[in-house]
Structure formats: structure tokens, C-alpha cells
């Protein structure tokens, strides 16, 4: 899977303002809503929160992958965000989360949605790359890190 086809400079939010789990999710959904590709902000937010309610998407090594299925989108929408100070995302390793990958995918459409998460998590399994990603404030550099 080619991440370059899905990620672009406009999908990257270099520094999150929110400092709570709920706040991060809302800020990222708002960021996606600003692209104009989201027909119903509330439905999208509910989809992500419902998924979080089942089990937190806070993984290990400061990575979180909040995602949801909703008909508020008609294609895969992706946002990558960074919180340098970290946020308590109820992660598996109980450490603060710094890197957030949000995906919104249409309810009944086929497409490589989870595969995108799998692919980006493979990229993020490199500790050095994670360090660089958190330290950089430049979206262009972040994009290069994620896609090369």
C-alpha cells in the first residue's frame, strides 16, 4: 500500500491544542470537518467515541489510532496529529500518547481502511522515526518521514 496516495500535507496537524482524550478527538474531527469532506460532524464524532468506548485505541509507544465507521464520509478520511507533551489516552502501556492517526471510513463501502492503519503502524514501529516525528513542527518534514 502506498501511503503517499492517502497522506498529504493537508492531512497533518503539527501541534494539537487539546490536552484531554475527548478534546483530542474533537479537535481532530473538527480538523477533518474543515476539509469540507465531512457531511455530519456530530455523527463522525459519535462513531469515533463509540469505538473508543469499546476499547481505547491508545496503543504502545505513544501511538493512538482513534477511528470510526460512519456514513458522514464517502471515502477514507485521514488525519495525523502530534501532541508534544502527550495526552492520557488510556493507552495499553498506560503511557501518554503523542502521535495520533485518525481514520473515518464509510460504513458499507469496500476499501483498504484497516490496511492503511496496519501500514502506518508498521512505519511508526521505528523508534527513531517516532522521535523525529514528535520533535519536528514542520508538516512537510513530517510527511516525508511518514512516506519515505
Amino acid at each position: 500500500m502506498n501511503l503517499k496516495k492517502i497522506l498529504s500535507r493537508d492531512t497533518i496537524l503539527p501541534e494539537l491544542q487539546a490536552d484531554t482524550k475527548q478534546g483530542v478527538i474533537e479537535e481532530m474531527v473538527d480538523f477533518l470537518a474543515a476539509t469540507g469532506k465531512l457531511t455530519d460532524r456530530t455523527a463522525a464524532l459519535r462513531a469515533v467515541l463509540d469505538r473508543e468506548a469499546k476499547m481505547s485505541t491508545g496503543m504502545q509507544h505513544g501511538i493512538a489510532i482513534p477511528h470510526g465507521k460512519t456514513d458522514a464520509v464517502n471515502q477514507l478520511l485521514v488525519a495525523v496529529a502530534i501532541k508534544r507533551d502527550g495526552v492520557d489516552f488510556a493507552a495499553l502501556d498506560e503511557k501518554p500518547s503523542h502521535i495520533f492517526i485518525m481514520t473515518l471510513s464509510p460504513e458499507n463501502h469496500t476499501g483498504p481502511h484497516i490496511q492503511f492503519l496496519a501500514e502506518i503502524s508498521k512505519v511508526l514501529s521505528n523508534p527513531e522515526l517516532r522521535e523525529k516525528l514528535i520533535r519536528t513542527a514542520d508538516p512537510d518534514k513530517m510527511l516525508t518521514l511518514l512516506t519515505t
Binding site: K54, M55, I114, Q115, L117, A118, K122
Partner: peptide, 13 residues
């Protein structure tokens, strides 16, 4: 294994 694990997790939930 990544993709298999992530997908299975979603279905388990």
C-alpha cells in the same frame, strides 16, 4: 500480521 490483528480486534469488539 499487523493487518490481520487489527481487523480481528475490530470484529472481536
Amino acid at each position: 500480521q499487523r493487518v490481520a490483528r487489527l481487523m480481528l480486534l475490530e470484529e472481536l469488539l
